[in-house]
């Protein structure tokens, strides 16, 4: 899916925010809520990126600032190097909002035609691409000319995804894309997104389905009470569970020594299992075991699930967060 809109982007980032902040003030009650607080984030071009956070963490406000439906209180957001407030920055963006409310008087075809025209596609391209896209998102041909008011949640999600992809964007921002879609449909959507990823499209996913994000995204960020709590590659974040070394025929004296260096150990049926926090500690233990002619059974990194990382992160109160 090559974009029809070439934008010269020297930064190499699809999304770049710097100190992005949005404060909602209620003048009557004299209160304020920092929905997004000083978030600086960079999403490289071609990356699949997941934004995670509990309900009300500020994810949607962050996405809305990227797409200019919410104005930031301070800070900047750039899309492919262009200021997010500049309408032309959104030429290469496809967006599927979370609680979308597509006009029910439109048909699936009509909706793609309307949003395609707003995205800058000419009539001939729309006519050519709409049937392709409706087929790609798995919408039954009989439903193409049916009003959206008669669509199921899953069908609306599919047609919504279709409108986001129709103009061949270079960045797809998807807010809960598989919400209401059955497992087979989810797999189809994942396959479509994977195909786009291979074509170099940047995918920014905002989802509560952590298993889905873990399966699909290379990089994630966790936002908590408006602040960026954690960001990095899924691989790095989930491999921080430590290292496990198992060995046999280990002398008692060495077991005692290694036990003091490990964070946990056990001996069962003559097999010693040691747990270490860092790779260096694990390597040092292997050196000691080999120096004593012990047999190494296995050495592996213990992976956490993304869900564990997420729960761990959101359980911690981020620095500087104040409740208003």
């Amino acid at each position: 899916m090559a974009s029809g809109f070439a934008i010269n982007n020297k930064s190499g980032f699809a999304i770049e925010t710097e100190g992005l902040t949005r404060v909602f003030r209620n003048r009557w009650a004299n209160t304020e809520l920092r929905a997004v607080d000083n978030v600086s984030l960079q999403v490289p071009e071609g990356c699949t990126f997941g934004l995670l956070g509990a309900n009300g963490a500020g994810k949607t406000t962050f996405v809305k600032m990227l797409l200019s439906s919410v104005h930031p209180t301070s800070g900047t957001a750039r899309i492919f190097g262009r200021h997010a407030q500049d309408a032309s920055s959104r030429r290469s963006v496809g967006y599927l909002p979370e609680n979308h409310r597509f006009p029910t008087y439109m048909t699936g075809w009509g909706m793609l035609d309307f949003y395609g025209a707003l995205s800058g596609m000419d009539s001939a391209s729309r006519k050519r691409k709409i049937p392709e896209m409706l087929t790609t998102v798995g919408l039954d041909e009989r439903a193409w000319h049916t009003r959206l008011g008669k669509y199921s949640k899953g069908m609306l999600q599919r047609v919504g995804l279709g409108q986001a992809m129709l103009h061949a964007p270079r960045l797809l921002v998807l807010d809960e894309p598989s919400d209401g879609v059955d497992p087979v449909g989810r797999k189809q959507i994942r396959d479509v997104l994977q195909a786009l990823e291979q074509q170099g499209v940047t995918i920014f996913l905002n989802s509560h389905l952590l298993a889905e994000v873990e399966l699909f995204c290379h990089d994630v960020a966790i936002i908590q009470k408006g602040k960026l709590s954690l960001s990095g590659s899924v691989k790095d974040l989930t491999s921080s569970g430590g290292y496990r070394v198992t060995a046999c025929e280990v002398p008692e004296a060495l077991i005692s020594e290694l036990a003091t260096r490990s964070k946990a150990h056990s001996v069962e049926h003559g097999l010693l299992e040691l747990m270490f926090s860092t790779r260096e500690q694990a390597n040092s233990a292997v050196d000691s075991l080999r120096a004593n002619q012990c047999e190494i059974e296995s050495l592996n990194a213990i992976r956490s699930t993304l869900e564990e990382v997420f729960i761990r992160t959101v359980s911690e109160k981020p620095e500087g967060v104040t409740d208003k």
């Binding site: 439906s69 309408a87 959104r90 967006y95 909002p97 979308h100 597509f102 707003l118 995205s119 800058g120």
Partner: peptide
Amino acid sequence: SSVFEPGRIELLLSKPVS
């Protein structure tokens, strides 16, 4: 007023139209 409905306006504003 229907244009300003939540869920509809966000999508319209995400398009490259001022």
